[in-house]
């Protein structure tokens, strides 16, 4: 599912709202979530999951072309931890499929 498919699916559930409005809302939501993470803050969505930053320590990397050692600074990377409802629903869907195969 792409972003435009997500927008269409949300719009189908809210038939009083034009797709254009939903498109704008999704853009603002994703921008807000990115802004929050870029500020080093967390996102916590009950039943879905949480986004936070994980620190990566500085390390020595290599230039893949020349093989030269390059000092890489420590950095923060976004991390997602799925919430219980999402974990259970995804896992159940897998077991539903494997049961029919057996």
């Amino acid at each position: 599912m792409t972003k435009s498919e997500l927008i269409e699916r949300i719009a189908l559930r809210l038939d009083q709202l034009p797709v254009k409005d939903v498109e704008l809302a999704v853009k603002v939501m994703l921008d807000t979530m990115s802004d929050v993470l870029a500020r080093g803050e967390r996102i916590e969505i009950r039943g879905f999951g949480s986004f936070s930053l994980h620190y990566r320590a500085p390390r020595t990397g290599r230039n893949p072309k020349t093989g030269d050692a390059v000092a890489l600074a420590g950095k923060y990377v976004p991390h997602f931890k799925p919430g219980k409802e999402l974990r259970d629903r995804v896992n159940r869907s897998m077991h539903g499929e494997t049961e029919t195969e057996v």
Binding site: M1, K3, L6, L86
Partner: peptide
Amino acid sequence: REAKEIVEYFFEEIRNALENSEQVKLSGFG
């Protein structure tokens, strides 16, 4: 009310897609 519904459906449709074995690609975000 609309704002609350949009936010709710945003996460619910992502959960639905994943539950139906679909990968979710939100360009610019992840």
